[in-house]
Design a protein around this nucleic acid. Structure first.
Length: 143
DNA sequence: AGCCATGCACCG
DNA sequence: CGGTGCATGGCT
């Protein structure tokens, strides 16, 4: 038994980009997973032994609905390509279900029993476009 | 490193 | 044949 190898990171989150939600018109091929030491250990280890390795992950959302996402390591950099990044694909149905937009956040977490949960959080100032265009002296005030 | 974009295969 | 997602290239 090797307790050290057991996953230590139990909860991660990501703010959706415009491309993640499909707002840019791109055929969405999955949200990008940053290669930081915090985020990556949450997912199964995928190496460069094989090209574009993947693992199917089942998540349960706040309404007990199950979602199967595919965690893929696009590593063709090591196979005469230029890619070297991780993506979580197959999320468009989920994004659509909850009408998530750029700036919104998804939270992935793992229970001690191994179940994986997915939650979402709408951005506070839920007007990603106008917020970006606001002058610096303007603020959105909630009444 | 991360986000944007697209050709193609597949499937209804 | 239109939508979807993979795999990949490109841009910032």
């Amino acid at each position: 038994m090797n307790f050290e190898s057991y996953v230590k990171v139990l909860s991660i989150s990501k703010i959706l980009s415009a491309n993640d939600t499909g707002e840019t018109g791109g055929h969405q091929a999955g949200i990008l997973i940053p290669k930081t030491g915090e985020i990556l250990p949450f997912f199964p280890q995928l190496g460069i032994e094989t090209k574009n390795p993947r693992a199917k992950l089942r998540f349960i959302d706040s309404s007990e609905e199950e979602w199967d996402f595919m965690f893929i390591y696009y590593n063709n950099k090591f196979y005469n390509g230029t890619r070297n990044e991780y993506r979580l694909t197959g999320m468009t149905a989920f994004i659509r279900e909850y009408n998530l937009k750029a700036g919104d956040k998804i939270i992935l977490s793992r229970e001690s029993d191994g179940r994986k949960l997915i939650k979402h959080e709408r951005s506070q100032t839920n007007d990603s476009e106008s917020v970006l265009k606001l002058g610096s002296s303007w603020k959105v005030v909630k009444i």
